Simulated assay, not measured.
Amino acid sequence: MSTMTLAARDSATMLGRQLKHLRRYPSLTIMLIAQPVLLLLLFVYVFGGTMGAGLPGGDGRADYLDYISPAILVMTVASVALSTAIHIAKDATEGIIDRFRTLPIAKASVLTGHVLGALVQTAVALVVVLGVALLLGYRPDAGPGGWLGALGLLLLMTVAFTWLCLLLGLAAGSVETASNTPMFLVLLPFLSSGFVPTDTMPAGLAWVAENQPFTPMIDTLRACLAGTSPGDAAGWAVSWCVLITVASYAGARRLFTAARAG
Rank of each mutant, 00 (worst) to 15 (best):
M1T: 11
M1C: 08
S2H: 09
S2G: 08
M4H: 01
L6H: 09
A12L: 12
G16W: 06
Q18D: 14
T29K: 09
A34C: 06
Q35N: 06
L39S: 02
L40N: 05
L41E: 04
L42N: 13
L42H: 13
L42Q: 06
F43V: 08
Y45L: 10
Y45K: 02
Y45F: 14
T50A: 15
G58V: 05
R61F: 09
A62W: 03
D63M: 04
L65C: 07
S69F: 03
T76K: 10
S79Y: 04
A81E: 05
S83A: 15
I88Y: 04
A89H: 00
T93R: 01
G95Y: 13
G95N: 12
I97K: 07
A106S: 15
S109R: 06
L111S: 07
G113P: 01
G113S: 13
G113L: 12
G113K: 06
H114I: 11
H114L: 14
H114A: 04
H114K: 12
V120R: 10
Q121V: 04
V124C: 09
V128N: 06
V128P: 02
G131R: 13
V132K: 00
L134I: 12
L135S: 15
L136P: 03
L136V: 01
G137A: 05
Y138M: 01
Y138E: 04
P140W: 00
D141N: 11
A142N: 04
G146A: 14
W147L: 11
L151G: 04
G152K: 02
G152T: 03
L155M: 14
L156Y: 08
L164R: 02
L167Y: 08
L168P: 05
G169C: 08
L170R: 02
A172I: 12
S174K: 02
T177V: 12
T177G: 11
A178M: 07
P189Q: 12
P189V: 15
S192Y: 00
F195P: 02
V196Q: 10
T198N: 10
T200I: 13
M201H: 10
L205K: 09
W207E: 05
N211I: 13
N211K: 15
Q212T: 13
P213F: 12
P213K: 11
P213T: 14
I218L: 15
T220L: 11
L221A: 09
C224L: 06
L225V: 11
A226S: 14
G227S: 05
G227R: 03
G231C: 07
A237Y: 08
A237T: 06
I244H: 03
L255K: 00
F256S: 00
F256K: 02
T257Q: 09
A258C: 11
A261Y: 01
G262N: 10
G262D: 14
